[in-house]
Measured scan of single mutants.
Amino acid sequence: MSYSVTLTGPGPWGFRLQGGKDFNMPLTISRITPGSKAAQSQLSQGDLVVAIDGVNTDTMTHLEAQNKIKSASYNLSLTLQKS
């Protein structure tokens, strides 16, 4: 079951990613910084990142996902799936 979260910026957003197409692993939330915008939302460590700002992550490399997140200036919309 997927869910959506919109973090209001600017960054830093307070989470780290792992995985990506180049690692043959789905993009997942690997760490959440305590007290951060991510920590105050529904994000959980281990959640799968399905889309970033409406763009499906199935074919994204780790770097492409990082760049997509960094390019979000004020709002960052994520679609996630609980692990």
Rank of each mutant, 00 (worst) to 15 (best):
D58I: 08
F15C: 04
K82L: 15
K70P: 03
K70I: 11
A38L: 03
S44L: 08
D22R: 04
T57R: 00
T57W: 02
L43Q: 00
Y74E: 15
N24A: 07
G35P: 02
S41H: 11
T6R: 09
K37F: 06
A51T: 13
L76C: 07
A51C: 10
R31S: 13
A39W: 15
E64S: 06
P12C: 06
L76Q: 03
M60Y: 07
Q45T: 13
G9I: 03
L43S: 02
G54S: 06
G9Q: 05
V55C: 14
M1C: 12
R31P: 04
I29G: 00
K37G: 06
K70C: 10
D47V: 03
S4A: 05
D22I: 04
Q66G: 12
I32C: 04
T61V: 03
T79D: 11
P12S: 07
T33D: 11
G20K: 02
S30W: 08
A39S: 13
L63W: 10
P34W: 04
L27Y: 03
K70H: 08
S73N: 11
G9P: 06
L78P: 00
K37H: 10
I52M: 05
T28K: 15
P34C: 06
N67W: 06
S77N: 12
S41R: 06
K82C: 15
S30I: 06
L27N: 02
V49L: 11
I69Q: 02
Q42H: 09
N75F: 10
H62P: 04
G14K: 01
S77K: 15
E64M: 07
K37T: 14
M1L: 11
L27C: 07
L48D: 05
P34T: 09
N56S: 12
I32D: 01
G11R: 11
G14I: 00
N67V: 10
H62T: 07
L78W: 00
N75M: 12
S73K: 15
L7R: 00
L63S: 13
T33L: 09
K70S: 13
M1E: 08
M60H: 02
Q45F: 08
S41Q: 09
L17K: 00
L48W: 11
A65I: 06
V50L: 14
Q45I: 15
Y74Q: 15
P12M: 04
V49S: 00
T28F: 07
L43N: 00
K37Y: 07
L78Y: 00
A65M: 05
S83W: 08
G19C: 02
T33W: 15
N24K: 12
S73V: 14
G20P: 01
S44W: 05
Q40M: 13
M1N: 15
Y74I: 12
S77C: 13
A39E: 14
A39G: 10
L78D: 00
G19P: 03
K68D: 02
S36N: 03
M1F: 14
D58V: 09
A51P: 00
T79Y: 06
V50R: 08
G19K: 03
G46M: 03
V49R: 01
L76V: 09
V55F: 11
P10H: 09
L43T: 02
L17W: 03
L80Y: 05
F23Q: 13
W13V: 05
I69E: 01
G14T: 00
L48Y: 07
G14W: 00
I32T: 04
K21I: 10
Q81A: 13
T6I: 11
G11Q: 08
Y3M: 06
A72R: 13
T6F: 08
S73Q: 14
T79P: 00
T79A: 10
T79M: 12
S71A: 15
P34M: 07
Q81C: 08
E64Y: 06
P34I: 06
S2L: 11
P34Y: 09
V49T: 02
L17G: 00
A65G: 04
Q45W: 06
K70G: 11
D58F: 08
L43R: 00
Q66C: 12
R31N: 13
S44I: 07
S44Q: 10
R16A: 14
F23T: 14
P10R: 11
G11W: 05
Q45S: 11
T59A: 13
N67F: 09
E64D: 14
G19M: 01
D22H: 04
L48E: 12
A38H: 03
D47A: 05
V50P: 02
N67A: 15
P12H: 05
G11C: 06
T79W: 07
N24R: 10
R16C: 15
V50N: 06
P10L: 07
T59H: 10
A38S: 06
G19T: 02
L80N: 02
K37Q: 10
P12K: 07
T61M: 05
S4D: 07
F23K: 15
Y74W: 13
K68S: 10
K37S: 09
I32G: 00
G46D: 06
L27R: 01
Q42E: 15
L76D: 01
A39M: 06
N67C: 07
Q18H: 08
G35Q: 08
Q42S: 13
V55T: 14
T79R: 13
K21Y: 08
L7P: 00
N56P: 13
A72L: 10
S36R: 03
P34S: 08
R31Y: 14
T8P: 15
N75G: 15
S4R: 10
N75Y: 08
L27P: 04
V5L: 05
S73R: 14
S41I: 05
I32Q: 00
N24Q: 08
D53C: 06
H62N: 15
T6N: 08
R16F: 14
L78R: 00
G35N: 15
G46C: 04
F15H: 02
Y74P: 15
Q81I: 12
P26Y: 01
E64K: 04
G19W: 02
L80M: 14
V50W: 05
V49I: 12
L48P: 05
L48K: 13
T28Q: 14
G54K: 06
P26M: 03
W13A: 04
T79N: 10
T57E: 00
T61D: 06
D47S: 05
G9D: 03
A72Q: 14
S2N: 15
S41L: 08
M1R: 05
L76E: 00
W13H: 10
L27V: 11
G20R: 03
A65F: 03
P34G: 06
H62W: 10
R16M: 13
S73E: 15
N56C: 14
L80V: 11
S44C: 14
S83V: 12
D58N: 10
M25Y: 07
T57M: 03
G46L: 03
S30Q: 08
F15E: 00
F23C: 14
I52F: 02
A65L: 05
G19N: 03
P34N: 10
T28S: 13
S83N: 06
T6S: 09
L7F: 11
Q66T: 14
P10Q: 08
A65R: 01
S41E: 08
M1K: 08
Y74L: 14
L78A: 01
G20Y: 02
P26T: 03
S77Q: 15
D22C: 04
D47L: 04
L80R: 01
I29H: 00
S36C: 04
